[in-house]
Write a protein that binds this DNA or RNA. Structure first.
Lengths: 366, 366
DNA sequence: ATGCATCAAGAGACCGGTCTCATTTAAAAA
DNA sequence: TTTTTAAATGAGACCGGTCTCTTGATGCAT
């Protein structure tokens, strides 16, 4: 026989043991790489394994060892470059330690998130990294702990949950961004974010169920208050969950009697849509409208004007989360750690000095 | 007891059976949702399960059933928005049919790809979707079939492999793009692509080990030849595998004695880097340099000028691949299908008429 | 030569489900 | 009421590994 011909049924340790004339236990020792075996036996087993084209069944292995070598990741949307980078960071760090990544998309929906976590736990992932959609519904996150699996929260911490987390310094970043705008003379500054309050209307920071979003809004309001801008809260706009929603919301915003002279976007997808709307309506940037966004997406450097951004170390956040999780998996038992990574304000050219504005950005047509 | 307190050890069917006073088989029937059980027994089992906070062990389940409800996905780079969309399409389609997705990054490296496939098969994924890095090394891809798992090739077909594939009509798209440029009077047209020939120099299409890349180059050359442009092959540039490499390569290109008046980028990451280089060197687009790219990335619509692109139905490609795979998993036994999805040339404003060019794009400053 | 530690190897239980098969029970048909 | 048929249940093998426990062989010190 020349080729390891496709077997009608895959070879098992028992098959290899039989062919090589040793016991199942010995064959398993060789194939599994544990215990002590003589060279003779090892050679015989390896030969037989090759002959039969033996492939270990990790499922069976996981069942007895209780470890699957897999970490589950639940994010809002992999299509969002933010999560794309984060997942890349996670997956690189995981692979470096011999772990695989099972990915699940929640679509920022709690029910989907719950279902995803349920199956991931049932599939016996060794641990999870989750970017929770809301911090109110945490039952399913607590269950992860009950099931004896470590959990690391990514990008969105939850105070009520005693688990590790990796976030960016959102509060500080929001303050810096708002301060920049205020210093440039802006007083009508809108903050556009994806968030899921039923009304889509902002009332109180306590309505905001996502820590990172809330902290940013708090920073935004705080700096506004310090600068003596009374109307700040009315410029907070929620519900930019899809490009379409963002578009409608932006148009509404720019149609108001007093349109904002600057907009802060909470992620690059939102910024992109705002950029499109401004362009379609002939609103000059930054003269008529300044724009700042969270997330230094690749494209923000090539637009006209290039966009001033808050650079979050996204890849590193994912990497750090994976490393933390793997530490827990290796037996680390210390108190929950909350890693807060610094952000960086990258000034490009999308912020104008207010006094120089040539025109109100307001959309007049229609 | 009020709370299902964290058990030191997870409850199993046997535990539930014991507590509810039925046999393990009956408890398993209720919990697994198969066979016939009396209402009385069902209620007792459900109650006990609740009491013990029973969670099924999918690993054990998979081992006996032979199905894991999981599909493995191996892509070059999830950070690339192209794969981001594709993975999203895959994962949505998978979830709709009750499958999970295990993701692996190959980094476009054959060895990593081989390793990823090996572990995925060992983990007993039900089937795989792979975007193979090269079409020369296909042993590990054939092994997937030997292991009895269906495989669907994504974006890159391999003629030598009798498996399903989903691709875009690359050849046709390349022809359309090149024709557009030729019709606008361009004769020095560069084609910049990520590819991994050792020399980074283009000699012959047979050196290109990735079908999609090769087909595009063939289309590019074909149209050039038809237009009577002799030097076409010398404008093919390989090796744009990282932003840095792309940058160097682009600068070299624009420094040549006769710089191209137009560049075709094979993906949006490359286009972005070219855009940056052009901008940094003060090369006016499209007056001094025209640009077209494959992949209608979100940002291409908001640059100045907005970029003319080949729109590939990326999400749909991922979705189709997943659906094909799931069909195979459901017993479909037909001959390998090769789904080729049409592309669309989206003309924006990054292509100028050659006669109108005000200056050579050449980079003069060192 | 004897004792004792060490190494190699085998037998078989075990992980947590599924599933077959035999048996009991209940309901429907005669 | 008796027979036929179907439904409900239990016992235990099985999936493919790991791992403990036991026994046999070998080596080194005494």
């Amino acid at each position: 026989m020349k080729e390891p011909q496709p077997k009608n049924t895959a070879a098992t340790v028992a098959d290899v043991a039989r062919l090589s004339g040793v016991s199942k236990a010995t064959a398993a020792r060789v194939l599994g790489g544990y215990g002590t075996v003589s060279d003779k036996a090892r050679d015989a087993v390896m030969l037989a394994a090759q002959e039969l084209d033996y492939r270990p069944n990790e499922l069976a292995r996981s069942m007895t060892t209780g470890r699957s070598g897999t970490i589950g990741v639940v994010v809002g949307d992999i299509e969002n470059p933010f999560f794309g980078s984060a997942v890349r960071g996670i997956s690189d760090a995981a692979r470096a330690s011999g772990f695989n990544v099972v990915l699940a998309n929640s679509g920022e929906d709690v029910a989907a998130e719950r279902a995803a976590i349920e199956t991931l736990v049932a599939k016996r992932v060794d641990g999870l990294i989750v970017s929770p959609a809301q911090e109110s519904a945490i039952g399913h996150l607590e269950d992860i702990g009950h099931a004896g699996r470590p959990l690391v929260l990514l990008d969105r911490a939850i105070a009520a949950l005693a688990v590790d987390s990796v976030t960016a310094d959102d509060r500080q970043a929001a303050e810096a961004v708002t301060r920049l705008l205020v210093e440039r003379g802006h007083r009508e500054i809108a903050y556009v974010t994806a968030c899921d309050t039923p009304t889509h209307l902002y009332r109180d920071t306590r309505d905001i169920l996502t820590a990172s979003v809330r902290e940013r809004i708090e920073g935004f309001l705080e700096v506004g208050a310090q600068a003596g801008i009374a109307e700040m809260p009315r410029w907070v706009r929620l519900g930019a969950n899809t490009p379409d929603a963002t578009r409608r919301l932006t148009i509404d915003l720019l149609r108001e009697a007093t349109a904002p002279s600057a907009i802060i976007a909470s992620d690059s997808l939102i910024a992109l849509e705002i950029f499109k709307v401004a362009r379609e309506h002939g609103i000059e940037m930054p003269e008529a409208l300044s724009l700042v966004t969270f997330h230094d997406a690749a494209w923000t450097a090539v637009t006209t004007p290039p966009v001033t951004v808050v650079r979050q170390p996204v890849y590193e956040m994912g990497e750090a989360a994976a490393k933390m999780l793997i530490e827990r998996l290796s037996g680390e038992r210390c108190a929950p750690r909350h890693l807060v990574l610094p952000t960086q304000l990258v000034e490009r050219a999308s912020v104008a000095v207010r006094g120089n504005q040539s025109a109100s950005p307001r959309i007049r047509s229609l």
